[in-house]
Simulated assay, not measured.
Amino acid sequence: MASVELHQVTKSYDGKTTVVHGIDLEVAHGEMVVFVGPSGCGKSTLLRMIAGLEGISGGEVRIDGRRVNEVAPRDRDIAMVFQDYALYPHKTLYDNMAFGLRLRKTPETEIRTRVLDAARLLRIDHMLERKPSALSGGQRQRVAIGRAIVRQPKVFLFDEPLSNLDAQLRTEMRSEIKKLHQRLGATIIYVTHDQVEAMTLADRIAVLSAGNKVQYATPQDVYNTPAALFVASFTGSPPMNLVPCRVEAGHAVLGDVAVTLPPDLVQRAGAAQSHTFGIRPENISLADHGGVPVPAHVVITEPLGAETLVTFAVGACELVARCSASFREAPGSARTIYLASAAMHLFDSASGLAV
């Protein structure tokens, strides 16, 4: 295991186009950190700079306290798992997993021990004599992960390893990777565009946008206290309700509907009037549990089996709420909804940052 430190890491092309802007973060020993963000946000580029596959335009990368900016990828003591499994089709699974160790002149007895241990851990020990063409996508991904495990590196790097799998298999493999991390206690940096993967796998999440680190925190903090509008809109399914508002006399005015804000939020909002009001669907209820009452009308209902998503019209805006599966009210029905004060958010309209 090892720590990873990034200090003001930047990446530019031709000295003009900067795609990663001064990233600072630390990954602790044994921690699993996920880089998440939309396509083109710089997450894979950042991972490749840690691996040494991309040059660093500025700043510093340290692995286990050692500066590695000028160190070749093979000498960084990392193992990388790619989106493409990159298995040798003519080799058995055993030989695929053993290949890197043989290149390093590792004794054959040690190779056998490492490969068998990794195969048992990944539950593929019964198929080591097969070739990749005889495997499913999930099994091939296990082999690719096993090839990384046998290296016994200081740091594992995963670059969107599940994106080629179907939805059900992604869910299964996500669970397997989480169990694997718990068993190995390894330092892992994982890249994905899928916020569900990020939330379920990570000890901490680095949310990236346009080459900038927007927030670096635990999944709970990213979800419950987003640092910016981008984070609030990117996390959650459905995402946070976000509505332009004015803050006047202790209220968020959503069009022509005034919602009472908690005093601490009013104080943080200060003199600025133009904000975006936010609240997550699960923090809107149909029963009065001490929330702020707001008159509303049902717009549409979306039954999902275990729950029903209901879109309510509040004045000229709309708010989505998570309701029970038994919700049956027709579109146009009048209903008072209750917004949880402690779960309200305000974002500065100019900067996009949480107040």
Rank of each mutant, 00 (worst) to 15 (best):
Y190P: 13
P89C: 12
K179H: 10
V27P: 00
G211D: 10
L353G: 02
L261G: 11
K154M: 13
A287D: 11
S209R: 15
V19Y: 05
G55A: 04
C245R: 00
T276S: 03
D256S: 13
A340D: 12
T109V: 14
M199C: 07
R246S: 15
S209E: 10
V61H: 09
V266E: 14
E302V: 07
H193W: 06
T308L: 05
L46T: 10
S341Q: 14
Y85C: 12
I78E: 00
A287H: 15
V320W: 06
L157H: 02
K131E: 01
A316C: 12
V298R: 03
G22W: 06
S39M: 11
I78Y: 01
L229V: 12
A86Q: 09
T10V: 13
D14C: 11
I188R: 02
T301K: 15
T18P: 08
L53N: 02
P262I: 06
G30T: 08
E318C: 08
F82Q: 01
D166C: 06
L103W: 13
S39G: 14
E329Y: 12
R147I: 15
K154I: 13
Y190M: 06
V355Y: 04
E129N: 09
G255T: 03
S341Y: 07
V155K: 00
R151N: 09
C245E: 01
S57F: 06
V33K: 10
A350G: 09
I300N: 14
C245M: 08
V257S: 06
H29G: 02
